[in-house]
Nucleic acid binder design. Sequence first.
DNA 1: TTCTATTATCGTAATATTTCTATATACAAA
DNA 2: TTTGTATATAGAAATATTACGATAATAGAA
Lengths: 107, 107
Amino acid sequence: MGLTKTQIFNVEQNELAVIFKVLSNPARIAILQYISRQDACICNDIVDEIGLAQPTISQHLKELKSIDLIRGEIEGKKVCYCINLPKWTAIQDLLNSFFNTTKSNCC
Amino acid sequence: MGLTKTQIFNVEQNELAVIFKVLSNPARIAILQYISRQDACICNDIVDEIGLAQPTISQHLKELKSIDLIRGEIEGKKVCYCINLPKWTAIQDLLNSFFNTTKSNCC
DNA sequence: TTCTATTATCGTAATATTTCTATATACAAA
DNA sequence: TTTGTATATAGAAATATTACGATAATAGAA
């Protein structure tokens, strides 16, 4: 097993689950917080800031990019990552909608 | 490996990650939505509603209970589950706080 | 061109997650 | 007490995730 049966759930349920999964790791939370704290984009000082190996950080960044939560712009040999604000807000709205709808008809 | 290095992150980052992890599965999303739709508490019609085996549902319910998102009250040989509304709201607030703080100082 | 710094990818080991079957437990009814 | 229903737990198989070292790819500097 180990395989989530996505086919038995609807698009909204699967989409929410994917978003929550991307956010379900403290390293990725820390990366998002660090990227946002540098008010301009930053590069792989992330590796120094967070205590994880460079390939590990790179992989986390890839997962954050997979749902478009951050964007990476190549600047010479460096890459500057920043929060994708429109998507960030859209996801916040989606999650609030889930929380509100679920809460509204509750015992 | 396969082991998240929680010790290098702070309490807030780990707490957020745990919450997101519990929500990161479409079955658990579906269970929450179904529980809330039955405006009184319901029992294991969940097994019939969602297309998963009874022990699988039971384990998902356990994970949802682990962060106090739902509560189960024993009624005879049945158990009635319902959303724990105060905790639900608290978590929604915590997530909004994370989204807002992270967004506020962004590029 | 060659060197060096930055980032991405590959491969792999350890652990975690999802799901199921089988079984145990709890309780109500017969 | 015995039977049946509802739920939980144990154990196992398949797959996913986390993390790292090694290596590749890229681009500016020497």
